[in-house]
Write a protein that binds this DNA or RNA. Structure first.
Length: 460
RNA sequence: UCCCCAGUAGCUCAGUUGGCAGAGCAAGUGGCUGUUAACCACUAGGUCCGCGGUUCGAGUCCGUGCUGGGGAGCCA
């Protein structure tokens, strides 16, 4: 007989004479002649109550079942006699698949997030993390659905790259050289002897690849892992994370902002609708304002304001900021939070930043002072999307590269795209984990990544 | 990399001015009951993060290291 997942049984509209359920014991309560076993199989947040009568031939073993043990139950799905649940299964037979000894670290009580991080291999078995990772799975499906519905093509951009992408962050070196005895030339490591004949790194962004494909397939997106070796210790940074990067040909900054806003809203609405039960856990135990925040994101028009106007708001606020507010300075975390949490109380898109604080590939505006950059800022998390219209004019792009001291030779293929049929195009990067934090109310990025990689931490 | 906080039972934490190491939950045993974070009683459980110092005496004070957390920077 085929097993039925608990998610389906709990949605049943009528009793079922014979069902087979397999799962893990969450808790057990004994009565005079019965044992109530709550079983969870991961298919949904809720567990199924199993009624084990003491006439079962292995009742003695059943009455000792510990939290975490795996069992298979065959029996009848009936309307519950108790009040806590609609359905329950009266067991005809319970096979004990394996017993979890009393050293099983997860108890039927709340554990701290810090403790659960030390047992990352077991934490998906808890309600909270099970819910978080079910939502993560749904969210990644929703990303693909969103783009496919709009005719975007999915690009697998390379994980290993030679491009020292605009000097953004620290890079993880990829090498096949023997690190204890690498070949050297003039006292330096000779990377011409390495696997690729040159230095190689893990990607920090798929953007440059995506631009090439946008200029061929029109609208594309990448969705894959991204790596930063930055030694940062914050609740918003991990060394390995996933980024969604759409890139659109024949699209200017306005179209870019339109898509970013539509994407964030669409994904939020999707999760509200499709993950209602899991989301409720977060609304109850993690962030009491979660549903209001999500409804606000899904329904409000994002505020759009130029960088200069944002600076004016900050100056006029009269608030004492730790970092100086002045044209030419980047928006600091405290500034972003002031705008999204206090001034507007909703997502804000800031655009047209000073060129000095942005990378070479962003399109120079007619004022020659700002570039067509845009960041989507949300309450608490801060920057969730960063993007720009790309500089499509070869001479301007080369001029910017010279200004910043970048080698045009290394980017010859990138510059080729501006030589042959160059068109205006735009794109952005969305931090997948940061969106997940926003949607669940989880405040630490390590808790929305299955096995997070941070400085000094890669055990699992 | 910088600033701040913490580390005590399996987990969450209390521990007064420096004076015999504590609670709740979990676990074990027994009891009760269509129970539902079940309940009641009992039992067991400790390198007080490591190292060094001050002191008659250190979980407590000082130094140092490690680990974890929060914040900043960088960014997504």
């Amino acid at each position: 007989m085929k097993r039925t997942k608990i998610v389906h049984l709990l949605k049943s509209e009528h009793p079922v004479d014979r069902v087979l359920v397999k799962g893990w014991v969450r808790t057990r309560r004994d009565s005079k002649s019965l044992s109530f076993i709550e079983v969870n199989d991961g298919s949904c947040l809720r567990g199924l109550q199993i009624i084990a009568d003491n006439t079962l031939n292995n009742y003695e073993s059943i009455a000792k079942l510990s939290t975490g043990s795996a069992i298979a139950i065959s029996g009848k799905l009936i309307e519950s006699h108790g009040s806590g649940q609609k359905w329950e299964v009266v067991a005809d037979k319970i096979d004990i698949i394996s017993i979890a000894p009393e050293t099983y670290p997860l108890q039927k009580k709340r554990h701290s997030d810090e403790f659960l991080r030390t047992i990352a291999h077991l934490r998906p078995r808890t309600n909270k993390y099970g819910a978080a990772f079910r939502i993560r799975s749904e969210l990644s499906y929703a990303v693909h659905r969103f783009f496919r519905d709009r005719g975007f093509k999915y690009l697998h951009s390379p994980i290993i790259t030679a491009a020292d992408c605009e000097g953004a962050g620290e890079l993880f070196r990829v090498t096949a050289l023997a690190l204890d005895n690498p070949p050297t030339k003039d006292g330096k490591i000779d990377y011409s002897m390495d696997f690729f004949g040159t230095e190689a790194n893990l990607t920090v962004s798929g953007q440059l690849s995506a631009e090439m494909f946008a200029l061929a397939l029109g609208d594309v997106y990448t969705f894959g892992p991204t790596f930063r070796a930055e030694n940062s210790h914050t609740s918003r940074h991990v060394a390995e994370f996933w980024m969604v990067e759409p890139e659109m040909a024949f699209c200017d900054l306005d179209g870019n902002m339109d898509l970013a806003e539509e994407l964030v809203k669409n994904l939020t609405a999707f999760i509200i609708k499709e993950c209602a039960e899991d989301l409720e856990l977060f609304a109850r135990f993690v962030d009491k304002n979660l549903m209001a925040t999500l409804d606000n994101i899904a329904s409000s028009e994002f505020i759009r304001l130029p960088y200069e106007a944002a600076m004016e708001i900050l100056i006029k606020s009269g608030k004492k900021f730790e970092h100086e507010v002045a044209f030419g300075n980047d928006l600091q975390t405290e500034h972003e939070r002031y705008l999204t949490e206090h001034h507007f109380k909703q997502p804000v898109i800031v655009y047209d930043y000073p060129k000095e604080i942005k990378p070479f590939y962003m399109r120079l505006n007619d004022d020659h002072k700002t570039v067509g950059a845009m960041d989507v800022l949300v309450p608490v998390i801060g920057e969730i999307v960063g993007g720009s219209q790309r500089e499509e004019r070869l001479d301007v792009l080369e001029g910017r590269m010279d200004e910043m001291g970048l080698s045009k030779d290394a980017y010859w293929w990138y510059l080729d795209s501006r030589r042959f049929g160059s068109v205006e195009h735009s794109g952005f990067g969305l931090g997948f984990e940061r969106l997940l934090m926003l949607l669940t109310g989880i405040r630490n990025i390590r808790d929305v990544v299955p096995f997070p990689r941070t400085p000094n931490s890669i055990e699992f």
